[in-house]
Structure formats: C-alpha cells, structure tokens
Design a binder for these strands. Structure first.
Lengths: 223, 223
DNA sequence: CGCTGCGTTGAGCTTCTTCAACGATCGTGG
DNA sequence: CCACGATCGTTGAAGAAGCTCAACGCAGCG
C-alpha cells in the first residue's frame, strides 16, 4: 500500500546508512517458500526488495486469513523488533523474492540514537493498526459483497464510472484477504455484477456504479 | 491488560516529566460519555487514570465491535499521534473516568529528544498489533464458543481446575468484544456448560476442564 | 495430450443473527 | 414500602449468510 515504508531509512545520514548496511542481510526466497511461521522466535523484521509476501493466520483446520500482502519497498513484521513475543502470524513469499532482514538488537540500538527513525517507525505501525482495525470492521460488521466493494474502492479511491481495475492477486488470495473462501467470493462477485455495480472479465474488474459501490462499502447492505 | 503502558513516562528525568505535565491536561467523563468518535480529528492520545474506556467500531445498522477495553494506567489512541488520519474508532467511558490527554504535536517533539520514550511507545504499539491480530484470528477462524474459551484463558493463563473467574464487564460487552451478540454468546456459554467445560453463576465463571478448554481455544472445534 | 491450478456452480448443512417474549435484578420515585 | 421502569440475561422460532463437498469448465504448460 505504502511503499514509503522503505523511507524509514531515508532520514539517515550516509554514515548511519553504512551502519544499517552492516547489520542487515539480504535473503532470497522461492515462490511459496516460508519466511517465518507463527510462533517462531521474532528475531527481527524485513523489508521487501523484490517480489511479494503474504502475512497470514491459519486455523486449525487449514483455513487461511491473509492480514497483509506486501510488495517492494514495504516493511513487515516490524512489531517483532519491539517486543519479545514470537511472530504472531505466518509469512510466505507469493513470488520469488529478495528480502532485507534487519535483526532486532542492533536495530533498536540504532533507534536509541536516532529518534527520527523511531518516528518513522511509529508512523508505519500506526498505518498497520489502521489497516487491522479496518479489517476487523469488515469481518465483524460487513457482508462479503460490502468487503469486496471496500477493497475495490481502496485500490482506486473515487473512481469515475467505467474505471478498470486489474487484480494483481488471484481470486483465492482475494477471498482469503477478505476473510472468506473462493466459492463465497465468487458468489459475491456475481451478486455485484447482477446488481450492475461492476463487470468482471477474468482479473479485470470494471467499476460501473461507483456511487452505489461506495454506499455499499459503508452500509454493509445492498440497496 | 498491561498497566505498564503508563510507564512510557517512567524513563523520563524529573525535568522532562515537568515538560510532560505542562503539555498534558486531565479530562473527566461521565459513564457513557463519548471521548471521541470515529472520523474525528486525531488531536492526540490518552492515558486512563481512573475508570474504564471502551474502544469500538460501529456498523451502519448499529452493531458494535469492541476492539479494546482499557483501565487505569493504560494508554489509548496512541496511533493518532503518529499519523494524520482521523481516529479510526470510537471511544466511550464505561464508567466515570478521569483521563489524561496528550496532544499530538508537543508529544512528537518530546519523542524527537527522547528515543527511550519512542522505544516504549513502539513496545505499546506492538502489543496493540498483536491484540488486533489475535482478534482477527478469532473473528475469521473461530466459532463463538472457541472465542469465549480463548477469552477466559487469556484472563487466567494455565488455570488449575475449579479456578473461578469473575467477569468485570457485562455479558453484552463481552459479546461485543468477541464479535457477536448477547444471544449468541448466551448460547455459547450454554454449550460449554453442557459440555462440562465451565460452570456459570452470574458473572462468576468456574473453569472445570482447563485442558479441553485450551484445546477448544486452539482448534476452533469442540471435541 | 493430460496434468495441475484456478474459478465457478449447485445442494445441503451449520452457524449466526433477527425478532419476539419473558424473568430477574436494581434503583428511583410515589 | 411497594410499584415501576430500565438494564441485563436467557430462550425459542425462523431466516439469512456463509461454509463444505462435489462436480465441472477452462487455461497454461509440461
């Protein structure tokens, strides 16, 4: 969402940047590979250089809830750096990925010297909190078609009619991001299509009626 | 949960504490009074001195999802201090309350001088992220009885059999915290009672079978 | 060509919510 | 002191939303 994440280091002087370079290391992951699992010791956090990463929870019977999908420039698992809990979720590479790892200890030392990084980091975490709060709002208070509407509008705020959105994830992943399963998402899409709010062709979604879509994403109820 | 929140200021020197005192103000709220509403400008954050506060989301048709309940010593709406978004949720006083208000600007200035406060704050926000992630896990992946089980175990980890827990919130509030409504919670309680996991008398809940309760809170499915 | 992953559709079932009614408790005012 | 209303909690019956399971179409790719 916010590739600015990477900019937490942009406030550094060149000398400080060298210090960062010294403590970080780049890791490579193949598509589908696990980066860390829930419960694993939170040794540090990550910044995506290339590829994409999904952060997700798994239920006992295998259902998955995606919390985030992060792309280049974005930072994840940052909470691990500031408490002693294990990672509270799983992280997999969605595609082949190159990822920067920043271990906990030296980074917190760095922050102690650099309040400006701390402020950046606080900003990043505030955004995460907002994102999760919005997700809870969806899960607890809205039906699937409304979540879908909100997702689309979040991708392109205030779209004019006939805006075309191309999904960059599979519908199964979208379902998991919205807290549901592919079948239910598929039916939700059908509902919005029949109601004339959107038109779908593969991964291309055309916004036909932005106003009613907006309304739906608020109210949680179709007209 | 963590009254340590207040300790963010414990790392200050007396001189710095004076500076804090100068920028903060104490506000009083009556039971049921609104502290802030979703969408309102996030002017700063709060620390509870006395009383309790609920942070919640509201759906269009009035259903409420409680995100947090905070008591004395705890800090809330801290994310508002570090981004420019409006408050993403509502806050009401559950009881008559005395609350410290810390306005955004002078506080971020203070942090710029005091990396140690920043680290404390990062720790607080990490805990919030964990809490919300756990809530999402519940909402998306678990049934109501399992959420209840987890709630009870969270209050008293590893309880011996016959441990008695006294709820300090109403069952309606508990329902809202668990992402459901009083009727459904009531039926969930009945289910656990009939299964012999707990016994309930008013707001006193006795843990009868901690092992199966633990198991349920994981798996999301009764035996 | 056949495989595999993705997406859709249908039928049946579970869980949760809605709506309504009712009992208990508690504090207030007559 | 009792009556009343308000809040809280429980229960029942009906309906809605979502999930499971199974089948099928389709595309890409070996």
């Amino acid at each position: 969402m916010c590739p600015d994440d990477f900019h937490i280091f942009s406030v550094l002087t060149p000398r400080e940047r060298e210090a960062v370079d010294r403590i970080t290391s780049t890791r490579r992951y193949a598509r589908g590979e696990t980066i860390f699992a829930e419960g694993q010791d939170g040794a540090g956090f990550f910044i995506v250089r290339t590829g994409r990463v999904k952060i997700y929870k798994l239920s006992a019977d295998g259902k998955e809830q995606i919390l985030h999908i992060f792309g280049p420039g974005e930072l994840f698992a940052e909470a691990a750096a500031f408490d002693d809990h294990p990672y509270p979720a799983n992280a997999d590479a969605l595609e082949d990925a190159s990822i920067l790892f920043i271990p906990k200890r030296p980074f917190t030392d760095l922050i102690a010297l650099n309040p400006r990084i701390a402020l950046r980091m606080l900003g990043v975490m505030s955004r995460r909190l907002h994102h999760l709060a919005a997700l809870i709002d969806d899960l607890s208070l809205k039906e699937v078609p409304a979540r879908l509407a909100r997702y689309l509008l979040h991708l392109t705020p205030n779209p004019p009619a006939h805006t075309v959105i191309t999904l960059d994830i599979t519908k199964a992943q979208l379902a998991s991001s919205l807290g549901t399963i592919p079948e239910t998402l598929s039916r939700g899409i059908t509902k919005l299509t029949l109601a004339g709010l959107i038109a779908v062709d593969g991964s291309k979604i055309t916004i036909l009626d932005p106003d009613r879509l907006e309304n739906l994403s608020w109210s949680g109820k179709p007209d």
